[in-house]
């Protein structure tokens, strides 16, 4: 069983936090902090397993993490999970993100936490691994996105346009103007 999934950057800023066991908010922050301290001082060429911190879990729990560029992906799991299996799962998660965001980078996670959550929800449910087959995961995500687009229809067009303009005001955020969004917005306007 997975107890928590945390994503934070090299400075310990949380980018995604998913707890499958309830902790109050301040406790969650402490856990993130502690986990960051544990993980960040480790070299890149050491093993990816870590005896759990004092705050989360206990002796039966392990931290299994991977470090990609500026981000740490940390899973806190108990002994019923296969260590190498979870490492695989992290890889699947990141590859899925990469497919969904097209060359995922930290900025994508910063501005689209909600989407990252939706993707994660297709992999893990309530602390149990739901699906590990990437094609299956991608189909599900794609279908749900389609559903959203259908709903958006004409009513979302103005809002979309405004947010697009807002985005354009800040050149450094160019990456966040989703190219597919623009034609979609125009199409919506035609109706």
């Amino acid at each position: 069983m997975i107890k928590a999934i945390l994503v934070f950057n090299n400075h310990g800023k949380p980018r995604l936090s998913k707890f499958y066991q309830y902790f109050p908010e301040d406790m969650q922050q402490q856990i993130i902090k502690e986990t960051f301290q544990l993980v960040s001082k480790r070299d890149d060429n050491v093993c990816n397993f870590l005896e759990g911190g004092s705050l989360i879990g206990g002796s039966d729990y392990k931290l299994i993490y991977r470090h990609y560029a500026t981000l740490y992906f940390v899973f806190c799991v108990d002994s019923s999970e296969s260590e190498l299996g979870i490492l695989d799962l992290i890889q699947v998660f990141v590859e899925t993100l990469d497919k969904c965001f097209e060359n995922v980078c930290e900025l994508d996670l910063i501005f689209h936490v909600d989407k990252v959550h939706f993707i994660l929800n297709e992999l893990v449910m309530g602390g149990m691994v739901l699906e590990t087959n990437m094609t299956e995961i991608l189909t599900r995500i794609e279908e749900q996105n389609k559903l959203e687009k259908q709903e958006a229809g004409i009513s979302a067009a103005p809002a979309r346009a405004v947010s697009a303009v807002k985005n354009m005001n800040l050149p450094q955020q160019i990456k966040d103007i989703k190219l597919p969004d623009l034609p979609q917005a125009i199409k919506d306007l035609k109706f």
Partner: peptide, 18 residues
């Protein structure tokens, strides 16, 4: 909820890529 300690995970094919 406090005493709840253990549970599990699932599976489907994956590559052992690392």
């Amino acid at each position: 909820s406090a005493g709840y300690e253990e549970a599990l995970g699932i599976s489907t094919p994956t590559k052992e890529n690392y």
